[in-house]
Design a protein around this nucleic acid. Sequence first.
DNA 1: CGAATGACTAGGA
DNA 2: ATCCTAGCCATTC
Length: 152
Amino acid sequence: MAPGERSEEVHIWYTAVYEAVQEIPHGKVTSYGHIARLLGKPERPRQVGVCLKHLPSPSADRSKNSATFHSGNVPWQRVLNAKGSISPRGPGAASQQADALRREGIEVRQDAMGQYTISLAEYGWFPDALPSESGLVESSDEEDEEAAADHA
DNA sequence: CGAATGACTAGGA
DNA sequence: ATCCTAGCCATTC
């Protein structure tokens, strides 16, 4: 399926992932696998990564910006792999994510292999359920307008 | 359209 | 601790 024309079911999945990622508190991080579990699909951490990979850049059109998910309103940088490190991908992408995390006060370390790692014990966010689904959160108007630079 | 890929992970060697 | 494998499934070749 082309990114532009997703089936109904896939679109719902993308939306759910983006909304879940938006619930990760500023200064906290979680894993692809945890997002998948929160959405009731523990076998698809990989598909969470796919969603973030396709996260569009902020559009020049503002009206569209507020209504669409993009790297400016979805804190993609707060999602790490199960080991608590930034999944290596394109050159430069990892260091960019590391910078974005440090920018929000998270301590990112680089090990001998050049891997960026974060202390999950200190910054991990692993609730049993999404705050929005616990039925208690009336979501006041709080947003994470930081976001970070776009990815390459 | 079939085959390969990958922002993943748990489990086993 | 590190390396390998199987399962995963939308996207890309």
